Computed example of a mutant assay.
Amino acid sequence: MPELIINGPAGRLEARYHHESASDSPIALILHPHPQFGGTMNNQVVYSLYHTFVERGFSVLRFNFRGVGRSQGFWDGGPGELADAACALDWLQLVKPDARSCWIAGVSFGTWIAMQLLMRRPEVEGFICVAPPSNLYDFSFLAPCPSSGLMINGDIDRVVPSSSIAELTGKLKTQRGIKIDHEIVPGANHFFEGKMDELTDIVGRYVDMRMTQIPKEKEKAKASKEPPPPAPAEVEPGDEEE
């Protein structure tokens, strides 16, 4: 887990990166919670997500948004943090240009940035949103949501009620070809204190399931774009063979 410095849009971005030697290893970018409320790339949930992907053969990057830790710059309320995330994903794709799959994951505020990035990057095939603050931020830009993914929260989360996330998930489920799963962890608060094993298990099983499905999804999408075979030529009257 070497320390890494990425040249970001507002100066350096402090990061941690796990590299898989296989040239086509899938990639994942992890985004941390709200910087102004203590969120960093070393957040417990971020750390858990990072290792969940590492254990499944992904090359994984997590980083500190501008103004956090050793990252330069200042809090920008969203636009600057989105630019940071886009820059981090660019770096990851330059390092792994042959990655067979691209994922993004976020925690709380990080999910709002992750989903905005998802809308701008069609190569992202899967996402994990942990405790998305759908009651605090506008997620209406997910129209339509371009990829399937997982929403997960705790049932005693006092920051983001389950009903708010269920409503968001319900809206996204209406879109053709997109499947949004919603899991609720009993007894878990906004920070999943004492419930990390349950969170890790749910995310791990979901990633395993999707990684078996994505090749099939790609084949189906490819087949739907292929032009139909040409229709047989019609025989004009009098042209029949004698």
Rank of each mutant, 00 (worst) to 15 (best):
H182C: 05
L118F: 03
G238C: 08
E219G: 07
L150K: 04
P146G: 04
A10M: 14
G38I: 08
M41I: 06
G80F: 09
D155N: 10
P237C: 08
I6Q: 07
A131M: 00
R121I: 05
I113Q: 03
I6C: 10
T52Y: 01
Y50S: 06
R62T: 15
A131V: 01
Q72E: 15
F65K: 00
K218Q: 14
L142S: 05
Y137P: 00
F191H: 05
G38L: 09
L61G: 05
R16V: 08
I214N: 03
N7S: 13
E183D: 11
D197S: 12
I27P: 04
E183V: 07
G204H: 01
E236K: 09
G238V: 12
H34A: 13
E14H: 15
T200M: 07
P97S: 09
E81D: 07
A233E: 08
I5F: 15
I104D: 02
E193W: 09
I178Y: 10
L13I: 04
R121C: 10
S224C: 09
E242D: 12
V60D: 06
G80M: 06
G238Y: 11
V54Q: 06
P35V: 10
P215W: 03
V54M: 07
L92Y: 08
S23L: 15
V235S: 13
P237T: 06
R205I: 04
S23I: 15
E219H: 06
S71D: 12
E236S: 12
V68S: 08
F141W: 04
M151F: 01
A28I: 07
S108C: 09
N189W: 02
R56A: 04
P227M: 10
L89T: 01
F109Q: 03
L31Y: 12
S147Q: 05
H18T: 10
P122Q: 15
Y17P: 11
C129M: 02
D157K: 00
P161R: 00
R205E: 07
A114Y: 04
K225L: 14
D239F: 14
E3K: 11
A188D: 02
A10I: 11
H190Q: 00
Q93I: 10
G187F: 13
P228A: 15
Q116Y: 00
A114K: 03
P132V: 01
P122G: 13
F192A: 03
N189K: 02
E123P: 07
D208T: 00
S224T: 04
P97L: 09
R210C: 00
V124F: 05
S224D: 13
A223W: 09
G154L: 02
E240V: 08
M151L: 14
P227C: 14
E123W: 08
Q175T: 14
S164D: 03
R121N: 14
L89F: 12
K195S: 10
I30K: 12
P144E: 02
D201L: 13
Q93W: 04
G80H: 05
S21E: 14
P215Q: 07
L94S: 09
G38N: 09
M119N: 04
A231Y: 05
T40Y: 14
F139A: 00
A105Q: 07
F58K: 07
G69N: 11
Q175L: 10
A22R: 13
R210P: 01
Q213F: 12
A15D: 01
G69S: 11
G149P: 00
E226V: 12
F127C: 02
M211H: 03
L117A: 15
P9H: 05
P215Y: 08
P26S: 06
K216W: 06
Q93P: 13
G154Y: 02
W112I: 06
G154Q: 00
S164I: 01
